[in-house]
Design a protein around this nucleic acid. Structure first.
Lengths: 238, 238
DNA sequence: GTTCATATTTAGGATCTCCTAAACTTCAGG
DNA sequence: CCTGAAGTTTAGGAGATCCTAAATATGAAC
């Protein structure tokens, strides 16, 4: 357990590993309860070879940021969890700021935030949080850890694919970072806050037919699973 | 002359070297005409050992960004000059944005900009430039290269130390990055735009006595030299 | 309980940026 | 011209992060 973990101590790569361990261990992108993350999963996410992941995990374990067991997987320690939340907070505040202050589209902000998250000061973080009014969710509907690194309670929601045919809901979260998917949704006007009606959910390869405003679209099932909604009215066109 | 100099090709360190070569070659911080820069000067600025500078200069020369002659010094090529101006534009736009959009003090922005300048996209640059209304000067009065990488013509100005006793001027530029000096000036309310009267310029070790608003201060000569003014009224208290 | 496909680790390298120590070049003064 | 101080380069290395190829562990299917 290295004592010198005050700040700026970690490299960009190390911060990214910790962030991805957090995201992968909390069931995809959702709420969190420590699950083991495999070398392979991390390698896929970070786009690096598994051998490189092994090396990094050993280093992070030495620093007391993860518990790593060869062939078993890795889990964040309390210290590692805090670092990961800090990075996540930076990322999501930046996304929110870019949208609200600089007019970025919500589908455009991920890449920019991905780079900036490692290079802003605590002062900058505080100023944009202040400017934004200390938001709890970013433009994708992802929860933003508070300054004290607590995650806001998530409103109850279901995947779009869990809606019955004819059921309606309001989008609360778009849990993908797939740029093509985000572009598609942005183009269709499907974003957090928008109302949606599930028309029919076909077989995996067909997809989900939905209504947005006055339009009907056929979305890939994979994508429909990434859209989280709060069920609102029932069958308004069943 | 490497053809692959499109973008993102350069490391942070490489960009910094190019920027510092530009700043050092243009007579301290002012206008520009290519002068040779020595290994030692660069080492001091970048806070690295001269041996490290030699290594980097060789690499930059290979990339066609500088002309380097051992024992003689280094000079930017056309390509290197463009990269340096691009970095400088990022830096100064960020400084201006932090002051105007986020309420930073003009004395606080340098360090933040120093880190961010290497990590923002062209889209981000464009958006903050737009938000700012395409300014020509940053909060310190330093010129901001345009999007086409042209430096704005500098208004005629002199160092504060060049004023006659009793002469007044308006601060147009504070050409230091010394944090203690900036803090001092900010505390005294001496910043670009403010009027100043030279009372007496004493010997080097004594400093310059100046009037700001209703106050009189004794400034270190070193600092007074970094303050550039446009002479306005003459002897209003000679 | 073998066996085998998959996942993982080890071993050995490459590149980047920085370092120290030692050798060399330059140039001004005598 | 010689000398010496100052500035510069060379040589050798360190740590970070990534890579490939080869060796090894795991766990499910027979």
């Amino acid at each position: 357990m290295n004592p010198s973990l005050s700040k700026g101590a970690l490299s960009e790569a190390q911060e990214d590993y910790l962030k991805q361990i957090l995201l992968l261990s909390s069931g995809g992108v959702g709420n969190l309860e420590p699950a083991m993350v495999s070398t392979q999963e991390l390698a896929d996410r970070i786009e690096v070879k598994p051998a490189s992941v092994t090396g990094m995990l050993k280093k992070l374990a030495e620093l007391g940021l993860v518990e790593y067991e060869a062939y078993k997987g890795v889990r964040l320690t309390e210290a590692g969890y805090r670092v990961a939340l800090e990075v996540l907070r930076h990322h999501r505040l930046i996304e929110a700021y870019l949208c609200q202050a600089l007019g970025y589209g919500w589908e455009e902000v991920h890449a920019e935030a991905e780079r900036l998250e490692h290079h802003i000061s605590e002062a900058f973080e505080a100023r944009i949080a202040e400017w934004l009014g200390h938001p709890s969710y970013d433009p994708h509907g992802d929860p933003i850890p508070s300054a004290r690194l607590e995650l806001p309670a998530a409103a109850p929601s279901r995947r779009l694919t869990a809606l019955q045919n004819g059921e309606s809901g309001q989008v609360v979260r778009v849990a993908t970072q797939d740029q093509d998917a985000l572009n598609l949704l942005a183009q269709l006007g499907i974003r957090p806050g928008v109302g949606l009606e599930m028309l029919t959910l076909g077989p995996l390869a067909e997809g989900a037919r939905v209504r947005v405003e006055q339009q009907r679209y056929l979305l890939p099932t994979y994508l429909a699973q990434m859209i989280w909604v709060t069920p609102v009215g029932g069958q308004d066109a069943g």
